[in-house]
């Protein structure tokens, strides 16, 4: 909804294209390509999304330690029977590990992840102790 109204004025994706900073650290043992991630934050939580088409829940492992989120996964290549051949092979396959340092500590108990239509969405609530608090100013 918001997107359609604002798209003419600016495209948030373009905006952040320039922000490709070494925010992520990653390793890929078997294939030199990784799925891409986006990270959203608000005062209360962080949302990490990635496009992982063709992977099912069992192929993805998510772990959280304090501020650090690690996502591991693997995707297999199409298997060929005898006499079959690839005309094109563009889809990535292999294993990946991606580690994120989030700007705040995470309440690991409340982390939720869902996978729908090949899109992974991890919701990471900020640890209660780290939430911003409004400080009342007293007058004497």
């Amino acid at each position: 909804m918001l997107m359609t109204n604002f798209a003419r004025l600016f495209d948030p994706w373009d905006e952040f294209e320039r922000m490709r900073q070494p925010f992520f650290s990653q390793t890929a043992p078997s294939n030199a390509e990784f799925p891409a991630f986006n990270v959203w934050v608000s005062g209360d939580d962080a949302i990490v999304t990635s496009e992982l088409p063709g992977m099912d829940r069992g192929a993805i492992e998510i772990s959280v330690v304090e501020k650090t989120l690690t996502v591991r996964g693997s995707r297999r290549s199409e298997e060929l029977a005898e006499g079959e051949s690839f005309h094109r092979k563009e889809r990535w396959f292999g294993q990946f590990t991606k580690t994120f340092e989030l700007p705040f500590g995470i309440d690991a108990e409340k982390v939720r992840a869902q996978l729908a239509g090949g899109v992974l969405e991890i919701s990471l609530p900020r640890a209660e102790a780290e939430k911003p608090r409004k400080i009342e100013i007293k007058s004497e």
């Binding site: 496009e51 088409p53 199409e78 690839f86 005309h87 094109r88 889809r91 990535w92 239509g117 899109v119």
Partner: peptide
Amino acid sequence: AVDIIEKKGEIVVVADMPGV
């Protein structure tokens, strides 16, 4: 991204279209 596989009786096109 697509894979195109030639099989005996058919051609299979596999396309990654996350979110669809």
